[in-house]
Nucleic acid binder design. Structure first.
Lengths: 208, 208, 208, 208
DNA sequence: GATTAAACGAGACGGTACGTCCGGTCTTGTG
DNA sequence: CACAAGACCGGACGTACCGTCTCGTTTAATC
C-alpha cells in the first residue's frame, strides 16, 4: 500500500517499515495543523524524522501520500445493526459527518479529488483506496435490510452493483456537499430529514 | 464582484474595466490548460496582458480569483419546463453533469472547496457566488411541481427553506460525487435511476 | 563587471547596485571562513541579505561569482619604484606572496583555475579579470628598468609582448607553486634567491 | 599507497588487489570524461564495478582518491641525457607541458591543490606523492650538469636542497601557470625562450 | 572440511545543497 | 492614481551526492 514501485530485489538494505508508519502519521498531523495547501513534503519528512529522499522513494508526490494517509481514516466507519434500515442509514450518515469534521479529512478529501481531475492514476488510487473500500457499508446495509424484508432482493448481479454505486454516491455525496460545499452542520435533525427523503422520496411523506 | 476592496477614491486614473474581463477569461483558459494546481498568478497576468500588480489590486489571491472566474459558469444552468417533476429533475441532473465535464469547472470546484475548509472568507464567497445562486433552480422546480400538484405546499417558511437546502445538497452532491469522486459517467441511464430513487425512495419501487 | 547578461531594458525596477557589493563582500567572507569547496550559493545569499534568485540573476554560478569576488584583490598589487630592478622584483614577489597568504585568495585562485580547465568561458573570464590586468606590473617594471638602462629596449612590439607574458608566468607561476603546491613559505630569503636566479640565470653567479 | 588505514588483521577475507587498480583506472577515466567537479564517488564505484563501501574502505574521500589516481601519471616524466643543460631543461619543460595537456592531469592537479589550502593532510599527501617524487628530475639534471662542468658544485648540502626546491618551483610553476592560468600553449618556441631566460637571466642576453 | 571473520554487492538511510519556480511586494517610468 | 515591467525576498520544489548503515553473500586463512 504505502510504497510506489517496490524494487522487489532481495539484495541491499530493506526499506524501513517504521518509516512508512511515521510518514503517514506525520502527514496526518501536518494536515491537521497546516491544511492541504500549506503542507509541504519537506515539513512531513522533518516531522517523521525521515529524509526527503526516503519519502520520495515511496510516494511520487503530495497527492499520493495524502490519499494513503487519509484512506485509512475511512476504515473506521462501521455499520452496527440498529434494528431497522432507517436507523442504520442515519447512523452511517452521522458517522460519516463526524469523520468530515476531522480537519485532516476535510482538507485532504476535496483536495485530492480536485487534483485527480487531471491525473488518472490518482483517480484510480482514490477509487481503490477510498471509494471501493467503503462500498462495503452499502453492501452490508442492503443485505441486512433484505434479510429483514425491508428491501427486495436483486435478481440481477449487474443491477445490484449499479444500485450499490448509486446509493453510495447519494449518501456520501449528499453528506459531503452539505458539510463542505454548503458548509452547514450535519446534525441529528438534518440526518433524520435526509434519511426520510432517502427512504420515501420526494413524493413520499411530507418531503422534509 | 471582481474587486477586493474598492478604493472608492474618486481621484486618479480609474481602473480598467477591460482588465477584469481579460483576467477572468485568462483564468478560465489557464484552468483548462493547466488545471488548478499548475495555474499561477504570473501566468494568468501574462495571458491577460496585464501586470501582476493589477491582478493583485483586484483579487487577494488565487482562490478568490478562481471562485469568481468559475462562478458565472454555473449561471448557465436553466430549468425549462419539461412538463413533470421527473423530467425537470432529470434535465437539471444532466445539465449539471455537462457542466462538470468542462475541465475548468471540474478542477476548480473541488479545489476551492478544499481551500475553503481552512478559510471562512472563502467559504462565504463560495456560498454566495455559487451555492446560494443555484438554489434558485430547486426553488423554481418546487414551485412548478406544487403548481402542478406533484408536491404539497409547505405551510412553514423555515421548513420550506430547509427542504430546499436538502434537495439541493442531494442533487448537487450526488452528481458531483458520481462524476468526480467515483469517476463514473453521468449518462441518461444513471440520471433516470437517480431520479427514480429521488422520487420514490429506497422503498419506493424496485429500488433502482 | 558583476552581472551576467544585462537585460538592458529600461523599464521595470532597476537592479540594486548595493546588492552587487554586498554579494561580493559576502563571497569573500565566506571564502575566508569556509573555503572554496564548502562555500555555497545559499550561504552567500544569506550573508549578503539577498535572495538566491537575485544572486543567480547576476552570476551563472559559483565559479563566475568567485572569480569576480577575488579579481579585485589583485588590484591591490603595486609597483613602487625601489631604485633598481632587483628591488622592484623582490618587492612584487613579496607582495604577491602576501596576497597568497590571504585565505580567500589561496582557496579561490586554484579552484577557479581548476574549473576553468573544462570551461572556456571561465578561462576567458579569469584571463581578462585577473591575468591581463596584472601584466601591467611587468610592463611598468620593464619600462622603468629600461629607463634606468638595466634592460635593453625591445625593438619589436610582438617580441616585447611575448617577453612580458613570459616574465609574468615565471614570477607569478613560481610564487604560486612555492606557496600553494610545494607549501613552503615565501620569505625574504627565498625572495632574494629567486630574484637572483631571475636576474642572472642558472649559470649566472653562484646559482642560488 | 591506496589504502587508508590498513586493518592488519590477519584473519578474514583479504582486500581485493584488483579492486584498487580498477578504482584508480575508473577515477582517471571519470576525470577525463567529467572533470574534477562533476566526478562523484558513486560514479567511480559504478565504473569500477565496485560497491561504494569498498571505495570508502580504502580512501577517505574524493581528494585522496584523486591525488593517488593522478600521482602516478607524473612518474612517466624522464630526463634522458640530451648532452647539455639547455637541452635537458627544454626537454623536461616540453614533457611536463605534454602531461598538462592530458585532461585528467589538468583538471585534477589544480583542484587538489585548491582543496589542500584548507587541509594539511592533503597538502602532505600532495607533497609526498607528487612534489617530492619529481624533484628527482632537478637533482638528476643538476648532477649531470655539474659532471659536465656546466654548473658549479654546491659545497653545502642545505644550500643544495634549497636550490633544488627553487629550480623545481620555477620550472614547474612557470609551465603550470603558462598552461593553466594564462591558458597559452607551451610550444617549442616558448620552451626555448623560457630555457634561455632560465639560463641567463633577465640581464643575460636579449631577454627573450 | 568446517569454522570464522572480514570484504564484498546492493541499496536504503539522514543530510545538505542544488538551481528553478512561484507568491506577493516594491520600485521604477509612463499615461 | 492606474498601469506595465521587472527586480526583490522568501520559501518549497524535486534531484543529486554525500558518507553511513544494514542486509545477505563470498572468499581466504585458520582450525
Amino acid at each position: 500500500m504505502p510504497n510506489e514501485s517496490t524494487p522487489s530485489g532481495r539484495t541491499g538494505r530493506p526499506r524501513s517499515a517504521a518509516a512508512d508508519a511515521a510518514i503517514l502519521a506525520a502527514t496526518r498531523d501536518a494536515l491537521v495543523e497546516l491544511g492541504w495547501s500549506k503542507l509541504t513534503m519537506g515539513d512531513v519528512s522533518a516531522r517523521a524524522g525521515v529524509a526527503k529522499t526516503t519519502l520520495y522513494r515511496r510516494w511520487a508526490g503530495k497527492n499520493e501520500l495524502v490519499v494513503d494517509a487519509v484512506a485509512e481514516l475511512f476504515d473506521s466507519l462501521e455499520l452496527p445493526d440498529r434494528g431497522c434500515l432507517e436507523a442504520d442509514v442515519e447512523n452511517v450518515v452521522l458517522q460519516f459527518a463526524a469523520l468530515l469534521r476531522r480537519p485532516e479529512a476535510r482538507t485532504a478529501l476535496m483536495a485530492v479529488v480536485a487534483e485527480s481531475t487531471r491525473d488518472p492514476a490518482l483517480r484510480d488510487r482514490i477509487r481503490s483506496a477510498i471509494v471501493d473500500r467503503q462500498k462495503r457499508l452499502v453492501v452490508l446495509g442492503r443485505e441486512r435490510a433484505q434479510a429483514r424484508g425491508e428491501l427486495p432482493r436483486e435478481p440481477d448481479e449487474a443491477v445490484a452493483e449499479r444500485t450499490t454505486d448509486l446509493i453510495f454516491d447519494v449518501i456520501a455525496g449528499t453528506v459531503v456537499h452539505r458539510a463542505l460545499v454548503s458548509s452547514e452542520p450535519v446534525d441529528d435533525l438534518w440526518a433524520a430529514s435526509f434519511t426520510a427523503l432517502l427512504m420515501h422520496g420526494l413524493r413520499g411523506s411530507a418531503g422534509a
